[in-house]
Every structure is written in C-alpha cells, then in structure tokens.
C-alpha cells in the first residue's frame, strides 16, 4: 500500500515537472515569435513610402525644427538596430509613442477603446460557442437528417458571407425596418452598451458560428465512424455513455480549433466596428491606416499578435491537459 502510494506521488510529481517544462518551452517559442513580429512591425515605419519623419509629422505644418525634434524623439538618425531597440524598450514599458491624428499618447487612445472591442469579441465568441457547438454535435449525431442538411447548407453560406454585408443587412432589417436595435454607435455604458452590441455581435458570430459548426460536425462525425463506437454499441453501452465517449474524444480537436477561431475574431471586429460605427480598436485601426497614423497601427498590430499568441499558448496547454497521448509525448 505504502509503495503504491509513493509510486503514484512520484508519477504525479514527474508529470507536473513535465508540464512546467512543456509550458516553459512553449513560452519561449511564443516570446521568439513576438520578438520577430515586433521587428517586422517596427520596420513598417521604414517600409512605408516616404520619409519616416515626414510620415510621423502627419498633417501638421512641416518645419525643419519639427522634423528635427521628431528625428530626435524617435532616434531616426541612429543606426536601424538602435532605433529598434529604443522602440522595443519603450514598447515593453507600455509606451508606443504619440498618435499623429489625435494629440494623445497611443496608450491612452487604446485604453479608451479596448474595452468595447473586448466586450464585442467576448459576446460574439460566447454566442458562437453556445450556438454552433451544440448544433454541430446534433447535426453529426443525425447525419443526413433535415436538421443536418439545412444547417450544413446554412454554414456554407455563412462561411462565405462577408461580415460587413451580413452586418449591413441585419442593420437594415432590425435597425431601420423593424426598429428594434440601435443602428449606430457604442451606447452610453452599462446595459445600453450591451444593447448596442447585440447586432454587431450577431454579425460577427454568424461567420464564426458557421466555421465552428463545420469543425464540430466534422470532428464528431469522424469520431462516430471510429471502431470504438461500434465496439461500445456491441457491448451494450447506453446511448448516453456512448455520447460521452464520443464527445470527450471530439472535444479535443474542437477546443483546439476554437483557438484558431479567436484569431479570426479580431480580423472580423475591424469590419464590424466600421460597419456599425463602433468606437473600438478595429475601427481605430482602419482609420489609422488610411491616415497613416503609424504609431497606432504598430501598437494595434503588436497587441493583436500578442493576444493571439497567448491564446495559442493557452490552447496548447489545454490540449496537454485533455489528451493523455500529448502528455506522454511531452514527457519523453
């Protein structure tokens, strides 16, 4: 009894150590990816046509003094690597410089807007998962049924349908025609804010839900065709038991792809925020790009990359937790 107990403790400790090692390795890889990306993002300043200093002046009057002060401030006369290291040092302290368009720091500008994008993203992500995953499971369970056929057809349209077109149609039907939802703007905080976000969130979720539906359905169908399902049936397991067997297996690829969906989410928020005139990070990016407000563009790009990289990391760890096969490989 004693030896069995200590044996189990040992394996627990071992696997905990393996998890730590796994996380450290993945963190290092994420850090490296972000470092390379930060370099590319910084290089945007020099890749943009025109003199970087002039680009940073924006629409202000160009005077030699102003250009000189900009050059000094951004170390534009230093060698390229030094400029980058200066910039990176500032970025790590949360300083992305000043917006060209608005005379504030990029950080304050982002702070004002980040909440709305977060609310919009989480609302549509929640909507997607709540609607698409159960529907995908149900459709896979009855392949060929009316539910499956109609949902599969809808998902093909949904995957292909552009977010802004769907958004405008919804806006027209529910906002202008039936006059149920507010048409434009971000609302005045609290419940009003959420009420304003309903249509945009549905818009964003429609494309994502189509994708998640497809992924879930494919994953569950693949599992249902496995031998272990036939074997479970043949030895008399109940429908409920078989379902839990299948879902536990199918949820592994589904959970992984939800991470991927998250990456798509931000691409979509740009269009939805512009469509519904919401004051979030996405519409800020669209505006800043057309205005060539580089510090803002750099900040948003890097921020997005960080969020996506961290999500990918979280998914990997989740993967590790739910799939014993990955655990084993991680240990070796």
């Amino acid at each position: 009894m004693d030896t069995a107990h200590s044996h189990r403790r040992l394996t627990q400790l071992l696997s905990r150590g393996a998890l730590t090692r796994f996380i450290i390795v993945r963190l290092a890889a994420t850090g490296l990816l972000l470092l390379v990306l930060s370099f590319v993002v910084f290089a945007l300043l020099h890749l943009t046509p025109g003199d970087p200093a002039r680009n940073l002046v924006g629409v202000r009057n160009v005077t030699p003094e102003l250009l000189q002060s900009i050059r000094d401030k951004y170390h534009l006369n230093d060698p390229f690597m030094n400029q980058y290291l200066h910039w990176l040092g500032n970025v790590l302290h949360g300083d992305f410089g000043e917006s060209i368009r608005n005379n504030t720091t990029v950080t304050t500008l982002l702070a004002d807007r980040v909440m709305l994008t977060l609310q919009l993203s989480s609302l549509s992500f929640a909507l997607t998962v709540i609607v698409a995953v159960p529907l995908g499971i149900a459709a896979a369970w009855r392949t060929g049924s009316a539910l499956d056929r109609s949902m599969s057809a809808a998902s093909i349209v949904g995957v292909g349908a552009p977010t802004y077109a769907v958004g405008l149609l919804l806006l027209y039907v529910f906002g202008l025609w039936f006059n149920i939802f507010p048409v434009y703007g971000s609302g005045d905080g609290g419940f009003d804010r959420w009420w304003h976000l309903v249509l945009p969130a549905i818009t964003l979720a429609s494309g994502l839900a189509a994708m998640v539906f497809k992924l879930t359905r494919t994953a569950v169908v693949a599992e249902l065709n496995q031998d272990y399902v036939a074997f479970a049936q043949s030895r008399g397991l109940t429908r409920r038991q078989i379902r839990s067997l299948v879902l536990r297996n199918a949820m592994i690829p589904v959970a992984t792809s939800l991470g991927l969906v998250f990456a798509f989410l931000f691409g979509g928020t740009i269009l939805v925020e512009v469509t519904f005139a919401l004051q979030g990070i996405g519409s800020l990016l669209a505006g800043s790009v057309t205005f060539k407000d580089l510090p803002v563009v750099q900040a948003i790009t890097l921020l997005t990359a960080t969020v996506i990289a961290l999500t990918a990391l979280a998914v990997d760890i989740l993967y590790y937790a739910v799939d014993p096969r990955v655990r084993k490989r991680g240990m070796q």
Binding site: L37, A263, I270, T304
Partner: peptide, 11 residues
C-alpha cells in the same frame, strides 16, 4: 498565420 489576414491586408 500569427495575425488575421484581414488585419495584415489592411495594414
């Protein structure tokens, strides 16, 4: 693939 296509294309 570390960034959404829409974002990179836009920028």
């Amino acid at each position: 693939l570390a960034l959404p296509t829409t974002l990179v294309a836009l920028v």
